[in-house]
């Protein structure tokens, strides 16, 4: 067994495999299929200060090698999370991380401050990129200034590991990455979904209720990998790679491109046990290549 442990800005993980926000519920939904403690971290559903009903149905459409969604951050709000969900998940022996969204820097900061009080939550992941919410994260994540302002506000309110999740729907992801690191991000994760659309040609209407949605799954992997590679070269903080990872080979590509850990999202829908298989597959690769530790392959592309 190789040493799979990684450290993301002070947060110790038993392996580099995490689950992506919005695709794994609170982890509990998958507890029948895998031992949740076998994965390095679980990023729970997007949480906002106030409850949100999300967008109307239809919220999902299957596409070539992927899917579009416009769930729109449906959640019961941070108070409900703290009172009802946290007690159910706090004893799961892995890193339970809360994905935080908001519609203004103050909301983000207040939500983060609430979660800062929860002892067993070692980190938050700031979603500055959700493309679904009309008044939501979009505005922050697409300009270096907007991204800076929200990260700065949260940094002042949140004392533990602050991961900032980047949107791919931007001109230069590297510029945004640099500005959120300047604002105090401890780590970055990327990518969130790519904005897309699908049309019902019989009805001549968009299929999704709000017309557009976020593309995820293997269709986005090459784009995600390229962005992770660019960002990992440009910043000093750890980068968490995600987007279309379906198996261990995909995960290893991200690690080689410079990601210190990876997240798996849509693939859980196809195989609810994929996360543990990927962790095992990374181990097998390391053994096959005579590596003692996963750190040996992070960013280890040959010139």
């Amino acid at each position: 067994m190789a040493d799979l442990s990684v450290n993301i800005a002070g947060m110790q993980m038993k392996n580099p495999v995490m689950t992506a926000s919005g695709t794994f519920g609170y982890g509990l939904e998958y507890a029948d299929f895998i031992n949740l403690e076998d994965i390095g971290g679980i990023i729970v559903k997007g949480t906002t200060l106030k409850p949100r009903e999300g967008n109307p149905y239809p919220r999902m459409v299957e596409t070539a090698s992927g899917m579009l969604n416009c769930v729109g951050l449906q959640n019961k709000g941070v108070d409900y999370f703290c009172e009802n969900i946290y007690p159910q998940i706090k004893d799961i022996q892995t890193n339970m991380i809360v994905n935080v969204s908001g519609s203004c820097p103050e909301d983000y900061a207040e939500c983060a401050a609430r979660i800062n009080e929860l002892e067993r939550i070692p980190a938050i992941e700031l979603n500055i990129s959700c493309p679904n919410v009309k008044q939501g994260g979009m505005a922050f994540g697409v300009t270096p200034e907007g991204a800076y302002s929200v990260v700065k506000a949260v940094r002042e309110a949140y004392k533990k590991t602050l991961i900032v999740k980047l949107s791919p729907n931007v001109t230069s992801v590297v510029d945004i990455a640099r500005s959120v690191v300047d604002a105090g991000a401890d780590a970055l994760s990327l990518i969130n979904t790519l904005m897309g659309m699908a049309i019902d040609i019989e009805k001549r209407r968009p299929i999704l209720s709000i017309a557009t949605g976020g593309l995820s799954g293997p269709a986005v992997k090459p784009v995600a990998l390229r962005m992770v590679w660019q960002v990992a070269k440009a910043v000093q903080v750890p980068v968490i790679g995600l987007g279309g990872i379906m198996n261990a080979d995909d995960a290893i590509e991200f690690l080689l491109a410079g990601a210190s850990a990876i997240q798996i999202g849509t693939a859980n829908f196809i195989d609810p046990t994929v996360t543990v298989k990927v962790a095992q597959g990374i181990n097998d690769y390391l053994e096959r290549h005579g590596c003692k530790s996963v750190s040996e392959i992070i960013g280890a592309l040959e010139d």
Binding site: G22, T23, F24, G25, E29, K45, G54, R59, M60, Q74
Partner: peptide
């Protein structure tokens, strides 16, 4: 028969109002 992705209550794609 709403269209589904995860089937286990994790993704919130299949909601009925």
């Amino acid at each position: 028969e709403n269209t589904m992705a995860c089937g286990v209550g994790a993704c919130l794609c299949c909601v009925e109002n």
